[in-house]
């Protein structure tokens, strides 16, 4: 008798369970099973098709020894650092400017956020036109009369990686701005008044009072942007294709190259696992930090 209402309750909520759990399990199963499969392949001598067998760390050693991978990883360090820092600064700067109660704030906010709605392929293609010395910015400035103007980073081996930074910052600093703006708006206005009475100038108010309040948001922005930086593929593919030469290779392109262009599944899988480890190196500390924060908050 007492179990009947519970059963009825379960029956009534069955659609909810189905709608939530089935897709969730499918997605998680997909993700986890393919991740495990990739890890397994990375230890096999697979080439064009997956084969069984065990080669230990040979694939990893081989990948780590290639010039391709090393350039890609150096690029990732430079691109990741520059992109995260610049988008952070741009986002914070835009948010602070928008927070000055200016006119047309809603319009500007939408404009700054708009690039986020674009696919990376579109961003990459558009910037590849803009940065192309023959048809883009350089050509425009040259035509305006400044004929000696050069802006040819896209075809410059040493500077090409910065074109990816530019496009990525353009695409995602609006996102950082939105998070920072929300943070700035949550700062108690009385804090600023109190600091004014205490005699702090605008710079000191930002440095000592407002920005410290924003640092949890900063951590979140950094982690999300780093995650994006590590997995960047489509933007580079559309903008430089990894070139000139292999000057703008990134790990995801190396994985693609091994797996689908050279037919070395084992090596590609090993490179993919190395990418996953890089991601975990960012995410695990973040999760630990979140956990500690949560524990501290629930104790207070």
């Amino acid at each position: 008798m007492s179990t009947r209402p519970a059963t009825l309750d379960t029956m009534r909520r069955l659609p909810e369970y189905l709608v939530i759990w089935v897709p969730l399990l499918l997605a998680a199963g997909h993700l986890i099973s393919f991740a495990l499969w990739t890890i397994w392949v990375s230890f096999t001598p697979s080439t064009l098709v997956p084969v069984t067998g065990w080669v230990g760390l040979r694939n990893y050693n081989a990948v780590l020894a290639t010039r391709n991978w090393n350039i890609a990883f150096d690029n990732l360090l430079l691109f990741g650092t520059a992109f995260v820092l610049l988008s952070l600064l741009m986002g914070l700067g835009l948010a602070i400017l928008l927070d000055q109660r200016i006119r047309g704030e809603n319009v500007l906010r939408s404009i700054f956020l708009y690039p986020l709605a674009l696919s990376f392929v579109v961003t990459g293609t558009a910037w590849s036109w803009l940065l192309n010395p023959g048809i883009g910015i350089q050509k425009l400035v040259n035509n305006l009369g400044w004929t000696s103007f050069r802006f040819d980073w896209l075809i410059d081996r040493d500077m090409a990686i910065w074109t990816i930074v530019i496009a990525a910052v353009w695409q995602s600093s609006g996102f950082a701005m939105a998070l920072f703006l929300a943070g700035l708006r949550s700062v108690d206005a009385d804090l600023v008044k109190a600091a004014q009475i205490d005699g702090a100038g605008p710079l000191r108010i930002y440095r000592r009072v407002i920005l410290p309040v924003l640092w949890p948001i900063t951590v979140t922005v950094v982690v999300i942007q780093l995650q994006f930086a590590i997995t960047t593929f489509d933007l580079v593919r559309a903008l430089t294709g990894g070139g000139p030469g292999i000057a703008t290779q990134l790990p995801a392109l190396v994985v693609y190259d091994f797996m689908f262009q050279r037919g070395l599944l084992g090596r590609g899988a090993a490179a993919a696992v190395l990418m996953l480890l890089t991601l975990l190196a960012v995410l695990l500390p973040y999760w630990a930090w979140r956990y500690v924060q949560h524990r501290r908050a629930s104790r207070a």
Binding site: L191, K193, A194, A195, I197, A200
Partner: peptide
């Protein structure tokens, strides 16, 4: 405000959250 020789107590207290009590008082 800083040169009016006044002090103010706010409804929300407006304590600087990132500073200790001592730093709040000496800011």
């Amino acid at each position: 405000p800083k040169d009016r020789d006044i002090a103010m107590v706010f409804q929300s207290y407006a304590l600087y959250p990132s500073m200790t009590v001592r730093q709040n008082i000496t800011f």
